[in-house]
Amino acid sequence: MSDTAQKMHFHVQAQRVDAHGSLAHCKEAKLELDTDLAGRKDAFNPAELLLAAVSACMLKGIERVTPMLNFELRSVEIHLHGIRQDVPPKMESINYEIIVDTDEPDRKLELLHNNVRKYGTVFNTVAPGTILQGTIKRKH
Rank of each mutant, 00 (worst) to 15 (best):
M1N: 05
S2L: 06
S2V: 03
S2A: 13
T4I: 10
A5T: 12
Q6W: 11
H9P: 00
F10K: 04
H11Y: 05
H11V: 14
Q13R: 15
A14S: 15
V17W: 13
V17Y: 11
D18A: 03
H20W: 10
G21V: 05
G21A: 12
S22R: 08
L23F: 12
H25I: 14
H25L: 13
H25W: 14
K27N: 15
E28I: 02
E28Y: 02
E28D: 15
A29E: 10
L31Q: 09
L31C: 05
L31T: 08
T35C: 02
L37F: 12
A38F: 11
R40T: 07
R40N: 05
K41W: 08
A43L: 14
P46R: 05
P46L: 09
E48Y: 00
E48A: 09
L51H: 03
A52Q: 07
A53W: 12
S55P: 01
M58T: 01
L59W: 00
K60N: 15
I62P: 13
E63M: 15
V65T: 08
T66R: 01
T66C: 09
M68K: 15
N70G: 11
F71E: 13
E72I: 04
L73D: 02
R74F: 11
R74L: 11
S75E: 09
E77P: 00
I78Y: 00
I78V: 14
H81G: 11
G82P: 13
R84A: 00
D86H: 14
D86F: 11
V87M: 03
V87S: 10
P88R: 09
P88L: 01
K90L: 05
E92N: 12
S93Q: 14
S93P: 05
I94S: 06
I94L: 09
I94M: 00
N95I: 01
Y96C: 00
E97Y: 00
I98A: 15
I99P: 07
I99R: 07
V100K: 04
T102H: 01
D103R: 08
E104F: 03
P105E: 04
P105Y: 04
P105F: 06
P105Q: 07
D106K: 09
D106C: 06
L109C: 01
L111A: 14
L111M: 11
L112I: 01
H113S: 01
N114C: 10
V116W: 04
K118C: 01
K118A: 12
G120M: 09
T121H: 05
T121Y: 13
T121C: 07
N124Y: 12
T125C: 06
V126L: 10
A127D: 08
A127G: 06
T130R: 09
I131D: 11
I131S: 09
L132M: 03
G134E: 10
G134N: 01
I136T: 04
I136G: 10
I136H: 01
K137T: 13
